[in-house]
């Protein structure tokens, strides 16, 4: 079943040097599956994710032939409808816990804010639900974390708090923007297992945005490779090692590997034609 359908998405920003198209005609479908979007910084992957939630500040402009989530036309929906979707049905985990959590609010207050305001829960019920959410992301001392300020948490803990916060309303679609790039490999594996469980148990759709090609190949079902605002290749994750596009191949080859040669790493020779 298709949860999200995007056709010919374009995002333009006005700059002093004239309009810049950050996303140039991106189309994809998403079911209840794990879709990876990979590319380097500036490739438009984050902007694509934010566009689904219409989180592009004017004068940035989102244009699409079609952008539909569960039968709702996102290109025409009014702000009230969008507010109803954001967080509740479509959630986004932002890249950096340092900048995405409120620095002057305790974690507990941030986690329960939505439950109290939106769902009208009592303080005690909201607290109980928040603690459950922290336990669901494998935080071992949830009571202590509830009382902590974001700066008192490590990057991994902060990232898990954000995941917990996004998962409390039980969204149908989760957009995760580099959710693990601030984490150590061992913690990374735990966070991925949590996300994986949610896709499987809750039947959630997941858009996983990352610059880490190998990670995406291992974790997702399908991968879109973006370069300068365009999808240059779409493939099943298991076929990533057999990627055809020279950009995808170049990204794979330039990573060092354990036991590889210590000689120069292959560099990525960009072809101007890729961006056409």
């Amino acid at each position: 079943m298709t949860l999200l359908n995007v056709e010919n998405l374009r995002v333009t920003f006005r700059t002093e040097a004239g309009p810049v198209e950050a996303v140039r005609g991106v189309s994809f479908n998403l079911g209840r599956e794990r879709l990876g979007i990979v590319g380097e910084s500036g490739s438009g992957k984050t902007i694509t994710g934010r566009s689904v939630l219409r989180l592009i500040r004017p004068p940035g402009k989102i244009l699409a032939d079609r952008m539909e989530f569960d039968g709702i036309d996102l290109t025409r929906a009014d702000e009230k409808t969008m507010r109803g979707l954001r967080g509740r049905r479509i959630a986004m985990i932002m890249q950096d816990p340092k900048y995405s959590l409120n620095p002057v609010m305790k974690v507990g207050a941030q986690l329960t804010e939505g439950l109290r305001q939106r769902d009208g829960m009592s303080a005690a019920d909201a607290r109980k639900k928040a603690i459950e959410a922290l336990e669901a992301v494998q935080i071992r001392a949830p009571e202590r974390v509830m009382e902590a300020y974001p700066h008192e948490l490590s990057g991994g803990m902060g990232q898990r708090v954000m995941i917990a916060m996004m998962l409390i309303p039980g969204p149908d679609l989760l957009i995760a923007d580099e959710p693990t790039s601030a984490l150590d490999v061992t913690v990374q594996a735990e966070v991925l297992a949590i996300l994986d469980g949610l896709v499987r148990d809750r039947g959630m759709g997941l858009i996983f945005i990352s610059h880490d090609l190998r990670l995406v190949a291992r974790f997702c079902d399908r991968v879109l490779v973006m370069y300068k605002g365009k999808i240059v290749e779409e493939l099943a994750a298991r076929d990533l090692m057999a990627a055809k596009h020279p950009y995808t191949q170049g990204l794979l080859n330039c990573l060092p590997r354990i036991g590889g040669s210590q000689g120069p790493l292959p560099s990525l020779d960009r072809d101007a034609a890729w961006a056409l």
């Binding site: 090609l213 170049g250 990204l251 330039c254 990573l255 060092p256 790493l265 560099s267 990525l268």
Partner: peptide, 28 residues
Amino acid sequence: DASVQAETLNLLSRLREERGLTFLMVSH
């Protein structure tokens, strides 16, 4: 980014070779 990492690591290796540098390097 991966491609920029490759270029930077290649640069460091070349400079070490040319100048006989000693590296103490931290990475996760």
